[in-house]
Design a protein around this nucleic acid. Structure first.
Length: 875
RNA sequence: GGACGUUUAGCUCAGCUGGUAGAGCUUUCGCUUGACGUGCGAAAGGUCAGCGGUUCAAGUCCGUUAACGUCCACCA
């Protein structure tokens, strides 16, 4: 490919074309290859209701980096994508869209509703997938799955039946969290607690015997209608005599007992609690212990029901107001206190959750949690960063049974059939036609569907074909890395682990890589309701996907949140452009020559320096990717590409490249070799631009695409520490010269002689041409020592340099500067001498550290002498 | 109530197993240096939140305090 490269990189022109190229080549597809080691990531399936947001972009970028890295390393790398049916969220959206048309779920009926839902999925489910592609995600799209597809449904039914048969799934009447808006039960994990301003209403319940009253307080006076007792602590001396007596429930005039229960905290409030078993989980427990009646005073929409008497038909909040008024009028209200207290709400719709007694399906968690704790304890699954295992343990250790049934239509319908004749339940993998207990044909399927997370919990193996014994399952499972945000550890990660341990007998992945969330420029969490979300697609169209990806990964450390910054995206965009132009320069130099991508036989010092430095970078990048320090790896590459390759090596090589013959040819080869290696290293981070450029390089037939090319490896033979040090000495001298010239405002066009006194003459003899070009010297004279009056003196570790620029030297300014430098150097020397005079340091510090300090001190002494000499000369 | 995180340059953040503090942006100065002004060269700017400890040596390890933040639990 010999086309002229544009002056600046245009991601819009490149990205879709390159993505098509990858897709056409089927390069993302992972076919079982027994000669390779598998590396598998299952994608956290985004909701079909969702639009791509920055959270996805972050998550996808990390996964794509890991997958591309392993693929290039020669693993059979499978990144399995898919989407989640998101039961509540999707159903809510569909109901909402129907409401606009004036129809309800019930109008439509279950079957028609589901048709509509599937149609909705067909239309919108693909949208998010298309958006993922814009990021460059190298997923195996042939293996794309959906949590409600046939295979997943089979897995769900299998697990349900197995757990049921083991007695780990049961159906029972419990108090659960009910969302009156979504009209379904939700699990404990789906309730968000937030502090709200509320009131503490202090009430008086008269004793039935007329001997007075008891005082108690409540935050929810409307539940009084369902009170069936009043409780005190059994050891509370104040109320000992009251236990066994009864009180008259205000407004309702029902006689209810005073019971003794240790649940009551005597120190809190008055030490008396009203007990409403139907509307409070703790009260429910008390009710069970004391055999109290349960009076439910609300319906499914949290509207007061017939048990609420005259309050029937009011919402719970309207009822509260009126009841408080009535209590006040009746003289039952002692006082009202303002308090802040936690209120639970539905994580989907934010409606205040109502505890409700209801017949639901549950998973018995204790037996599942124990082995799941064990696999993390024994490091079969590791959290990165490690601290997140505490969160996991904490949740798993305190786990309660999981309410899995939902009163929704969109989801996996529970594979249980109720018999109208014997009342028994038949649970079956396939649709039964009769009751397994009495044989009656009069059976009806349970209406409820399963919690979305029940199916996502099986994702790592259901997507590989389980419950069938597929070759994929055998080869790719257990998977390797799960990448996700910390906000989803309970919902998903924990459930995948216990499901897999139970069903597969092993952990689903060896590493859980946890990242933080992306916040807006002000550090505020991005949210739809605040409208502060930043659309990744807009950023991509403005700066390119590679720039966005590189931004997301740099400066991001595992587990920590990160702020969006358009300034920083701009700078990563500039980095893309830098890479582009470096490549353009390489092309200008190699296009008319026959250049292979391989190191020449002989290398100059600067060649050795860049090869050596690259070799180190390869090692560091690989090590950091291995331990999920993606940000560190990216930063190393940024520095290497920009500072080492562009700012130094290309500049150092220019004069050779302008020449003819072997030296020029060698330079071309090193130039293109290092570029090739760097593009490979950068490819996982910035796939589009690196592929685009790599395709134009003479890469022979190693691979059709960069994404399939070999990831660089550290090689001992590419290590040239001595040459690298020599080069650094020359570079240090050049930097020092530039520094002085800049301080004195000498323009590059004004060249000057440079005298270099050094005891490593050879190094500076070799570096002469570089010092001339990059240090703007008209001539470089290297010797043992010089005596030059009126010159600027510059001292580095290995050299004392004089630049005679009499007319430019302001003697006073130069003296001031030299004195300043003298002081600074003396200070350093004092520090080093302090160490060397410290008996503890000399006897206990490692030998190499002592040596380094000694060398430094020697240099500093030398430098001090030189500066003093320079000061004398000026005077 | 419990657990965890953060506190480093004006801003946003890196800094792995302890050995003389880094980047990007910003600011200032200089530059038609043969890929790039989305650039090049340079400068300024930090008692690494406070206190105490371990160590020859602490931004890094331990303890403690403070501020901010997150998660879990939840007292009616």
């Amino acid at each position: 490919m010999q086309k002229e490269m544009a002056k600046s990189y245009d991601p819009l022109e490149v990205e879709d074309r390159i993505y098509d190229f990858w897709i056409k080549g089927n390069y993302f597809h992972a076919e079982i290859d027994k000669n390779k080691k598998p590396y598998t990531i299952v994608m956290p399936p985004p909701n079909i209701t969702g639009q791509l947001h920055m959270g996805h972009a972050l998550d996808e970028t990390f996964q794509d980096i890991l997958i591309r890295f392993r693929r290039m390393q020669g693993y059979c790398a499978l990144w399995l994508p898919g989407t989640d049916h998101a039961a509540i969220a999707t159903e809510a959206k569909i109901v909402e869209s129907m409401r606009k048309e004036g129809i309800s779920k019930e109008d439509l009926g279950r079957e028609k509703f589901l048709e509509r839902a599937w149609e909705w999925k067909r239309v919108y489910g693909g949208r998010i997938v298309d958006q993922l592609k814009k990021l460059g995600s190298s997923c195996d799209w042939q293996r794309e799955r959906f949590t409600m597809d046939e295979g997943c449904n089979k897995a769900v039914n299998e697990v349900f039946v197995r757990l049921y048969e083991k007695g780990l799934i049961y159906r029972g009447e419990r108090i659960i969290n009910w969302c009156p808006h979504c009209c379904t039960s939700i699990s404990d994990a789906e309730v968000d607690f937030a502090e709200h301003d509320g009131h503490f209403w202090h009430l008086r319940y008269p004793l039935s015997d007329g001997s007075g009253f008891v005082s108690l307080a409540t935050t929810r006076p409307e539940t009084l209608l369902g009170d069936t007792a009043v409780a005190v602590h059994p050891d509370d001396e104040r109320y000992k005599d009251l236990v066994g007596k009864t009180v008259i429930l205000p407004l309702v005039n029902r006689e209810i007992p005073i019971v003794a229960d240790t649940y009551v905290e005597p120190e809190f409030g008055t030490g008396v609690v009203k007990i409403t078993p139907a509307h409070d989980p703790n009260d429910f427990e008390v009710g069970l212990r004391h055999n109290l009646p349960i009076i439910n005073v609300m319906d499914d929409n949290a509207i007061m029901n017939e048990n609420a008497g005259k309050y029937k038909g009011l919402s719970r909040f309207e009822a509260r107001k009126i009841i408080v008024k009535d209590l006040e009028d009746g003289g039952y209200l002692e006082k009202v206190e303002d308090i802040k207290h936690n209120v639970g709400s539905c994580y989907r719709c934010k409606t205040v959750v109502e505890p409700k007694i209801s017949k639901q399906w549950f998973v018995k968690m204790k037996p599942l949690a124990e082995p799941a704790i064990d696999v993390v304890k024994t490091d079969k699954t590791k959290f990165v960063p490690e601290r997140f295992d505490k969160i996991y343990f904490n949740w798993m250790n305190n786990i309660k049974d999981w309410c899995i049934s939902r009163q929704l239509w969109w989801g996996h319908q529970i594979p249980a059939w109720h018999c109208a004749d014997c009342g028994e339940i038949t649970v079956s993998r396939t649709n039964p036609d009769s009751c397994a207990h009495c044989g009656s044909k009069n059976i009806k399927r349970d209406e409820d569907t399963l919690d979305t997370w029940f199916s996502s919990a099986l994702w790592p193996f259901s997507t590989l074909g389980w419950p069938d014994k597929t070759p994929e399952l055998d080869y790719f499972f257990p998977t390797n890395t799960l990448v996700t945000g910390y906000d989803i550890i309970f919902f998903w990660v924990a459930r995948m682990i216990f499901s897999s341990v139970e069903q597969m007998g092993q952990t689903p992945f060896d590493t859980v890589f946890i990242h933080g969330i992306l916040r807006d420029e002000n550090g505020v969490k991005m949210s739809k309701s605040l409208g502060n979300g930043i659309d990744p697609l807009e950023i991509i169209s403005e700066y390119g996907a590679d720039a966005l990806r590189f931004f997301l990964v740099t400066g991001n450390s595992p587990g920590n949140d990160m702020r969006f910054s358009s300034k920083r995206v701009e700078s990563t965009r500039n980095f893309c452009n830098k890479i582009w132009n470096a490549s353009r320069f390489v092309h200008m130099n190699i296009d008319d020559h026959d250049v292979k991508i391989e190191l020449p036989k002989t290398l100059t010092t600067e060649d050795k320096w860049i090869v050596h430095t690259l070799n180190d970078v390869i090692k560091e990048v690989t090590e950091n990717l291995d331990k999920f320090e993606l940000g560190v790896a990216a930063a190393k590459l940024y520095d290497f590409m920009w500072d080492c390759y562009c700012d130094w090596y290309i500049e150092l090589a220019k004069s050779r490249l302008m020449s003819e013959g072997e030296s020029a040819q060698n330079a071309r080869q090193v130039l293109v070799y290092v570029l090739d290696q760097t593009l490979r290293l950068l490819h996982p981070f910035m796939p589009f631009i690196t592929e685009e450029i790599w395709q134009t390089l003479p890469h022979e037939n190693e691979a059709e695409a960069l994404l399939l090319a070999k990831f660089p490896e550290y090689k001992e033979e590419n290590s040239y520490p001595d040459a690298a040090n020599e080069m650094e000495s020359v570079m240090e001298a050049i930097r020092a010269i530039r520094n002085r010239r800049a301080e004195m405002n000498v323009p590059p066009s004004k060249k000057a002689k440079v005298y270099i006194a050094t005891n490593v003459k050879q190094i500076f003899e070799n570096g002469k041409s570089f010092i001339c070009k990059l240090g703007f010297a008209s001539e470089v004279i290297v010797g043992d020592s010089f005596q030059i009056d009126g010159a600027v003196t510059i001292v580095t570790a290995d050299a004392k340099m004089y630049i005679p620029m009499e007319e430019l030297v302001d003697k006073q300014a130069e003296l001031t500067r030299l004195n300043k430098e003298l002081e600074a150097t003396k200070k350093l020397l004092a520090q080093d001498e302090g160490k060397l005079n410290n008996a503890g340091f000399v006897s206990k510090a490692p030998q190499n550290v002592i040596e380094t300090v000694k060398e430094q001190a020697a240099r500093e002494r030398e430098k001090i002498a030189l500066i003093e000499a320079a000061i004398d000369a000026l005077k």
